[in-house]
Protein backbone atom coordinates (compact mmCIF):
# COMPACT_ATOMS: atom_id res chain seq x y z
CA UNK A 1 0.00 0.00 0.00
CA UNK A 2 2.72 2.48 1.03
CA UNK A 3 4.74 1.65 -2.11
CA UNK A 4 1.70 2.26 -4.29
CA UNK A 5 0.93 5.57 -2.57
CA UNK A 6 4.56 6.67 -2.86
CA UNK A 7 4.57 5.80 -6.58
CA UNK A 8 1.26 7.62 -7.17
CA UNK A 9 2.50 10.71 -5.36
CA UNK A 10 5.64 10.76 -7.48
CA UNK A 11 3.75 10.83 -10.80
CA UNK A 12 3.84 14.07 -12.76
CA UNK A 13 0.05 14.52 -12.54
CA UNK A 14 0.02 14.17 -8.75
CA UNK A 15 2.92 16.61 -8.35
CA UNK A 16 1.26 19.09 -10.71
CA UNK A 17 -2.04 18.88 -8.80
CA UNK A 18 -0.27 19.43 -5.48
CA UNK A 19 2.33 21.99 -6.31
CA UNK A 20 1.22 23.98 -9.34
CA UNK A 21 0.32 27.56 -8.48
CA UNK A 22 -2.01 27.57 -11.51
CA UNK A 23 -5.54 28.30 -10.24
CA UNK A 24 -6.85 25.75 -12.78
CA UNK A 25 -4.90 22.96 -11.07
CA UNK A 26 -6.04 22.00 -7.58
CA UNK A 27 -8.25 25.04 -6.76
CA UNK A 28 -10.53 24.96 -9.82
CA UNK A 29 -10.77 21.15 -9.82
CA UNK A 30 -11.96 21.43 -6.22
CA UNK A 31 -14.45 24.11 -7.36
CA UNK A 32 -15.78 21.80 -10.13
CA UNK A 33 -16.15 19.09 -7.48
CA UNK A 34 -18.29 21.48 -5.40
CA UNK A 35 -20.45 22.49 -8.40
CA UNK A 36 -21.01 18.83 -9.27
CA UNK A 37 -21.87 18.11 -5.62
CA UNK A 38 -24.47 20.88 -5.63
CA UNK A 39 -26.16 19.57 -8.77
CA UNK A 40 -26.00 15.82 -8.15
CA UNK A 41 -27.02 15.95 -4.47
CA UNK A 42 -29.33 18.94 -5.02
CA UNK A 43 -31.28 17.70 -8.05
CA UNK A 44 -31.54 14.21 -6.56
CA UNK A 45 -32.81 15.73 -3.29
CA UNK A 46 -35.36 17.87 -5.13
CA UNK A 47 -36.78 14.65 -6.66
CA UNK A 48 -36.77 13.06 -3.17
CA UNK A 49 -38.74 16.01 -1.78
CA UNK A 50 -41.36 15.60 -4.52
CA UNK A 51 -41.68 11.89 -3.72
CA UNK A 52 -42.09 12.76 -0.03
CA UNK A 53 -45.00 15.07 -0.85
CA UNK A 54 -43.56 18.54 -1.59
CA UNK A 55 -44.89 20.23 -4.78
CA UNK A 56 -47.49 17.51 -5.37
CA UNK A 57 -48.70 19.03 -8.65
CA UNK A 58 -45.30 18.32 -10.28
CA UNK A 59 -45.83 15.24 -12.52
CA UNK A 60 -43.34 12.63 -11.27
CA UNK A 61 -42.75 11.11 -14.70
CA UNK A 62 -41.61 14.44 -16.13
CA UNK A 63 -38.93 14.80 -13.41
CA UNK A 64 -36.94 12.18 -15.33
CA UNK A 65 -35.96 14.99 -17.74
CA UNK A 66 -33.56 16.20 -15.04
CA UNK A 67 -31.76 12.84 -14.88
CA UNK A 68 -29.22 13.66 -17.64
CA UNK A 69 -28.10 16.79 -15.74
CA UNK A 70 -27.95 14.79 -12.50
CA UNK A 71 -25.78 12.07 -14.09
CA UNK A 72 -23.59 14.67 -15.81
CA UNK A 73 -22.94 16.22 -12.39
CA UNK A 74 -22.20 12.78 -10.98
CA UNK A 75 -19.60 12.04 -13.68
CA UNK A 76 -18.06 15.50 -13.28
CA UNK A 77 -17.55 14.59 -9.64
CA UNK A 78 -16.24 11.11 -10.36
CA UNK A 79 -13.61 12.66 -12.68
CA UNK A 80 -12.70 15.61 -10.44
CA UNK A 81 -12.74 13.29 -7.42
CA UNK A 82 -10.20 10.96 -9.04
CA UNK A 83 -7.91 13.93 -9.76
CA UNK A 84 -8.21 15.15 -6.16
CA UNK A 85 -7.43 11.61 -5.00
CA UNK A 86 -4.36 11.47 -7.26
CA UNK A 87 -3.18 14.75 -5.70
CA UNK A 88 -3.36 13.47 -2.12
CA UNK A 89 -3.83 9.66 -2.17
CA UNK A 90 -2.36 9.07 1.29
CA UNK A 91 -4.52 11.77 2.84
CA UNK A 92 -7.75 10.12 1.63
CA UNK A 93 -6.92 6.40 1.58
CA UNK A 94 -5.55 6.30 5.14
CA UNK A 95 -8.67 8.05 6.50
CA UNK A 96 -11.72 5.88 7.43
CA UNK A 97 -13.98 8.91 6.84
CA UNK A 98 -13.10 8.72 3.12
CA UNK A 99 -14.53 5.17 2.93
CA UNK A 100 -17.63 6.37 4.81
CA UNK A 101 -18.04 9.08 2.14
CA UNK A 102 -17.72 6.52 -0.67
CA UNK A 103 -20.25 4.23 1.05
CA UNK A 104 -22.75 7.09 1.38
CA UNK A 105 -22.30 7.97 -2.32
CA UNK A 106 -22.64 4.30 -3.32
CA UNK A 107 -25.97 4.00 -1.51
CA UNK A 108 -27.23 7.38 -2.79
CA UNK A 109 -26.40 6.47 -6.40
CA UNK A 110 -27.98 3.00 -6.05
CA UNK A 111 -31.15 4.64 -4.73
CA UNK A 112 -31.14 7.18 -7.58
CA UNK A 113 -30.91 4.32 -10.10
CA UNK A 114 -33.71 2.50 -8.33
CA UNK A 115 -35.92 5.62 -8.35
CA UNK A 116 -35.12 6.16 -12.04
CA UNK A 117 -36.10 2.55 -12.80
CA UNK A 118 -39.22 2.16 -10.67
CA UNK A 119 -40.81 5.57 -10.02
CA UNK A 120 -40.00 7.25 -13.32
CA UNK A 121 -41.25 4.27 -15.33
CA UNK A 122 -44.66 3.97 -13.69
CA UNK A 123 -47.30 6.14 -15.41
CA UNK A 124 -49.92 5.28 -12.77
CA UNK A 125 -48.00 6.91 -9.93
CA UNK A 126 -49.17 10.44 -10.70
CA UNK A 127 -52.76 9.30 -10.26
CA UNK A 128 -52.52 7.77 -6.81
CA UNK A 129 -50.50 7.71 -3.62
CA UNK A 130 -46.80 6.89 -3.86
CA UNK A 131 -46.06 3.45 -2.33
CA UNK A 132 -44.32 3.40 1.06
CA UNK A 133 -41.22 1.85 -0.54
CA UNK A 134 -40.77 4.95 -2.71
CA UNK A 135 -41.00 7.23 0.32
CA UNK A 136 -38.46 5.13 2.21
CA UNK A 137 -36.08 5.31 -0.74
CA UNK A 138 -36.49 9.09 -0.98
CA UNK A 139 -35.86 9.55 2.75
CA UNK A 140 -32.81 7.28 2.61
CA UNK A 141 -31.51 9.21 -0.42
CA UNK A 142 -31.68 12.54 1.46
CA UNK A 143 -29.90 10.93 4.42
CA UNK A 144 -27.13 9.44 2.23
CA UNK A 145 -26.46 12.68 0.34
CA UNK A 146 -26.27 14.63 3.60
CA UNK A 147 -23.92 11.95 4.96
CA UNK A 148 -21.72 12.09 1.85
CA UNK A 149 -21.46 15.90 2.11
CA UNK A 150 -20.71 15.80 5.85
CA UNK A 151 -18.07 13.08 5.46
CA UNK A 152 -16.53 14.81 2.43
CA UNK A 153 -16.25 18.12 4.23
CA UNK A 154 -14.79 16.50 7.34
CA UNK A 155 -11.96 14.93 5.27
CA UNK A 156 -10.09 18.21 5.68
CA UNK A 157 -10.21 17.84 9.47
CA UNK A 158 -9.82 14.13 10.11
CA UNK A 159 -6.78 13.06 8.07
CA UNK A 160 -3.72 11.81 9.92
CA UNK A 161 -1.18 11.71 7.07
CA UNK A 162 -1.06 14.23 4.23
CA UNK A 163 1.56 12.48 2.05
CA UNK A 164 3.98 9.56 2.32
Amino acid sequence: MDHFLLWLESTALSIWMRESINVFAFPMILAYHTIGMGFVAGLSSAVDLRILGVARRVPLLELKRFLPATWAAFWLNAASGVLLLIAYPTKALTNPVFYLKLTCIGFAVAILRSIAKSIFQNPNLDLGEIPARGKWLAGASLFCWAGAIFAGRLLAYTYTRLTQ
Binding site: I35, G38, F39, S45, F66
Partner: peptide
Protein backbone atom coordinates in the same frame (compact mmCIF):
# COMPACT_ATOMS: atom_id res chain seq x y z
CA UNK B 1 -16.21 21.83 10.45
CA UNK B 2 -19.90 21.18 11.26
CA UNK B 3 -20.87 24.68 10.11
CA UNK B 4 -18.93 24.08 6.88
CA UNK B 5 -20.81 20.82 6.31
CA UNK B 6 -24.14 22.60 6.87
CA UNK B 7 -22.99 25.37 4.49
CA UNK B 8 -22.40 22.75 1.76
CA UNK B 9 -25.78 21.11 2.44
CA UNK B 10 -27.46 24.52 2.15
CA UNK B 11 -25.59 25.09 -1.13
CA UNK B 12 -26.88 21.80 -2.55
CA UNK B 13 -30.45 22.56 -1.47
CA UNK B 14 -30.28 25.99 -3.12
CA UNK B 15 -28.71 24.88 -6.41
CA UNK B 16 -30.85 21.72 -6.56
CA UNK B 17 -34.25 23.41 -6.22
CA UNK B 18 -33.58 26.85 -7.71
CA UNK B 19 -31.35 25.34 -10.42
CA UNK B 20 -34.13 22.88 -11.32
Amino acid sequence: PICESLHFIGLSLLIGTIGM
